[in-house]
Design a protein around this nucleic acid. Structure first.
Length: 324
DNA sequence: CATCAGGGCCCTG
DNA sequence: CAGGGCCCTGAT
C-alpha cells in the first residue's frame, strides 16, 4: 500500500536522568492499549514520532540503574539532524519522559505508605511519560472514547494505515501519527468509512484547531492547572475525562486528580479498599488526603504496579474489568 | 434474533 | 444538571 520511509541516518547520545529513575516503569505503560507507533522490550524502547515536522525514530536503551541512571538515545532520521535540532530534541524528550524531574521527595515520603509503599519499592523512579506531542495525544484520546480496547486498536490501525507515515528504523516498522493538515484535506465521510463513527467530526475539528496554531503546546505548558484545563476543554470532542488525562500525561501535572470514570472507579475501589465498588467521592477524598500534591503520581504508582503484576501473573478480577 | 454498553462528549431542555 | 443520541462491535 503505502511506501515505507527508511530512516537510515543515525545519531546517538547518552542521557542522565535524575535519580531515582526507573527505566522500564517510565518508558512502558502496561495499562495502555498497544499501538503500532511504539515497541517495548525489557530495557529497550522504540518509538516513531514527528519532530520539527519530520518523521523520526527514537530508541532508548537502559544503561544504568535506578540510583545511577543512564539512558542511551539513538535517533534515526531520513536526513542528518543539525546540532540545534539535536539539542532541541533532547530537550523535548527530557520533557516528555520527565528525565530531569526530581521525584526523590515523593519516593522518600511514601516509601512506608501502606498502600503506596509496596508500589514505590517495586517501581521507585517511575515517571509520567508521554512520548507524543499534544496533537498526537489528542488523536489517541479520541479513539479511546467510548470504545473497547479492541475497537480502539482497530480505529487507530485504520487511521495510521491511511493517513500516517510508515517508517523503518533499527529493523522496526512503525507508524508516525498523521498530521493535522492531512486530516483537514480529508472529508468527514471518508473518515467515517474507516469506522471511526462520530469521532470523524472530532478528528476534523481538533485538526483544524491545532493547524490554526491556537493551541500552542509550548505556551500551554506554562499555564497553571485551572487555566490549562479551561483552555483544553475548548477543543471539540475533548471533555473532562480527556482533559484529566492530558494534564497528567502530556503536561505532567502530578497534582491533578478530580475525575473518576466508572471503569477506573471499580479498579481503585479494589486497590484502595479491597471492595467491589466504593463511591467516587470516597475514592477521590482518600486520594487527596493521603497523597496531597502528589496524588496523581501516587495513584499512577498503585495503578501501574497492578498492571505490571497482572502482566507477570494474570489477576482474575482485573482480567474481567479489562474489556477487550 | 434483538438489545446493550463500552477506557465520553455534545446538545438540549 | 439530567438525559438522550451518537458510530460501531462484541457480549449476552
Amino acid at each position: 500500500m503505502r511506501k515505507v520511509k527508511p530512516l537510515s541516518k543515525k545519531w546517538g547520545v547518552s542521557l542522565f536522568p535524575k535519580a531515582p529513575f526507573n527505566f522500564d516503569g517510565t518508558v512502558y505503560n502496561p495499562g495502555h492499549f498497544p499501538a503500532p507507533t511504539e515497541e517495548y522490550r525489557k530495557g529497550k524502547w522504540w518509538q516513531a514520532l514527528r519532530f520539527e515536522n519530520k518523521a523520526i525514530g527514537i530508541k532508548f536503551e537502559d544503561k544504568g540503574t535506578v540510583d545511577k541512571p543512564q539512558v542511551k538515545l539513538t535517533v534515526f532520521s531520513e536526513r542528518p539532524l543539525n546540532s540545534e535540532s539535536k539539542n532541541e530534541l533532547v530537550k523535548e524528550l527530557s520533557y516528555r519522559f520527565e528525565f530531569d524531574k526530581d521525584i526523590s521527595g515523593f519516593t522518600q515520603k511514601f516509601k512506608n505508605d501502606k498502600l503506596l509503599g509496596p508500589a514505590v519499592k517495586r517501581w521507585r523512579g517511575m515517571r509520567s511519560k508521554c512520548g507524543y506531542n499534544l496533537y498526537e495525544s489528542l488523536m489517541i484520546y479520541v479513539v479511546l472514547q467510548n470504545a473497547t480496547v479492541r475497537r480502539t486498536v482497530q480505529m487507530m490501525q485504520a487511521m495510521l494505515e491511511n493517513y500516517g507515515e510508515k517508517v523503518k528504523f533499527d529493523n522496526k516498522n512503525l507508524y508516525v501519527v498523521w498530521q493535522p493538515k492531512t486530516i483537514n484535506e480529508v472529508g468527514e465521510e471518508e473518515l467515517r468509512q474507516l469506522k471511526v463513527g462520530y469521532r470523524a467530526k472530532f478528528f476534523k475539528r481538533i485538526s483544524e484547531d491545532i493547524a490554526s496554531g491556537t493551541f500552542d503546546e509550548y505556551q500551554l505548558r506554562k499555564l497553571g492547572n485551572e487555566e490549562l484545563k479551561e483552555k483544553l476543554l475548548k477543543l471539540y470532542g475533548i471533555g473532562p475525562h480527556s482533559v484529566e488525562n492530558l494534564l497528567w500525561e502530556v503536561f505532567h501535572r502530578h497534582d491533578v486528580f478530580g475525575v473518576l470514570p466508572p471503569w477506573e472507579q471499580k479498579i481503585y475501589s479494589r486497590l484502595l479498599f479491597s471492595q467491589k465498588l466504593a463511591s467516587e467521592d470516597k475514592i477521590l477524598k482518600t486520594i487527596e488526603k493521603r497523597w496531597e500534591q502528589y496524588k496523581r503520581l501516587a495513584a499512577f504508582y498503585v495503578w501501574t504496579d497492578l498492571f505490571w503484576r497482572h502482566k507477570q501473573k494474570p489477576i482474575k478480577w482485573l482480567e474481567k474489568e479489562i474489556r477487550l
